[in-house]
Computed example of a mutant assay.
Amino acid sequence: MTETVPELPAEAVTAGFADLHHGDEPLLLPNAWDHASARALAAQGFRAIGTTSLGVAAAAGLPDGTSATRDETLRRALALGSESFLLSVDAEDGYSEGPEEVGEFARELAAVGAVGINLEDRLGSSALHAAKIAAVKSAAPGLFVNARTDTYWLGDGEGTTARLDTYRQAGADGVFVPGLTDPGDIAALVKRLDVPLNILYTPTGPTVPHLADLGVRRVSLGSLLYRRALGAALEAVAEIRAGRTPRGATPSYGEVDALSRRGDPTHSDGP
């Protein structure tokens, strides 16, 4: 007889995601681009999975960072929000300049099971970005808002602390500074903050253990896994073209098919 496990209230699930930012180790958040990649990562023991806006945009044949993937992002959240892992969604700038519209989109994400949202400022008006954050917290109070500033991603780092202070006052639960890799600057920023700092992992930057020692509470992989997967595909086809057998791990047809079937563990071993 199979025991029925009671479903946790949405508030408890969301609180569980926030708690992952305050554990003994930083939350290492891998970013998936489709159903199979998300479930494969969850099978590796990751309790929380993020989405990558680049991967979602590329799969749809749309440019990243241009607010063009609102519908695709919501569809991805609908597919993944009911899975066993906790889902955080990269929503670019909220897909609108209107805070109320951004708040409504966040409400839709929460309704399909997402527990976190990333919102980026693209070095635009910090007041407008703060208004979007406040609108999200009003429309979906339980959603963990990770407020991203692009001061290092698109600029030279100037104005970082002022922007983060503004976003925190607007209700951000955590802050994200992609492009920041200097250990001294990271440690100094951690000391000023009263919310978790999220850093984007880069192979040329500090390791995850080093980031943990610096006080970072969340480490995202962004589009790295998607780009590595694409690179592996190109390496494999080059090996095949040259008459060699491609190396590296290759999941079977059946394994990938099973990962792609929502609620259906059966699969075939077809082509």
Rank of each mutant, 00 (worst) to 15 (best):
A258R: 11
D121L: 03
N146K: 09
H210L: 09
D173L: 04
D64Q: 05
P209D: 10
D165W: 04
V237R: 15
I49G: 04
S223A: 11
V177W: 05
E72Y: 03
E235F: 09
R217G: 11
G45Y: 10
E101V: 11
T52E: 02
T160D: 11
A40I: 06
S268V: 00
L193M: 07
T250I: 02
L54A: 10
P209M: 07
E101C: 05
D90N: 10
A60M: 00
D156G: 14
K132D: 00
G61H: 05
E235T: 12
G94R: 06
M1D: 09
F105G: 08
T2F: 12
L193R: 06
R261L: 12
T52I: 01
H22N: 10
A18P: 12
Y226Q: 13
T245H: 15
R227L: 05
N146M: 07
V5T: 07
A111I: 05
G222F: 07
F144A: 14
G65L: 04
L28P: 01
G113L: 04
L78S: 15
G45F: 13
P141N: 13
G50Y: 03
L109D: 07
A258F: 00
D90F: 05
P30G: 06
A15D: 13
S88G: 02
T245W: 15
A135V: 02
L8H: 08
Y226G: 14
L123H: 11
T52N: 10
P206N: 13
A60F: 01
Y152T: 08
L78A: 09
G65K: 02
D156T: 02
R228L: 07
E25Q: 08
A130M: 13
E25W: 00
D24A: 08
V195H: 07
R262K: 13
P246W: 11
L259C: 11
P99G: 05
E239R: 15
A258N: 03
S82M: 00
V195F: 15
L20V: 00
D156Q: 08
P203F: 07
V175T: 06
Y253H: 15
D71Q: 13
G174Q: 11
E255N: 05
I117W: 14
L197I: 02
L41I: 05
L221E: 06
A79D: 02
G155L: 03
H210T: 14
D121W: 10
A48Q: 06
L74F: 14
V5S: 00
A127H: 08
L109H: 01
A127V: 09
V115A: 14
T161E: 15
G222N: 10
A91E: 02
S252T: 08
P271L: 00
A147C: 14
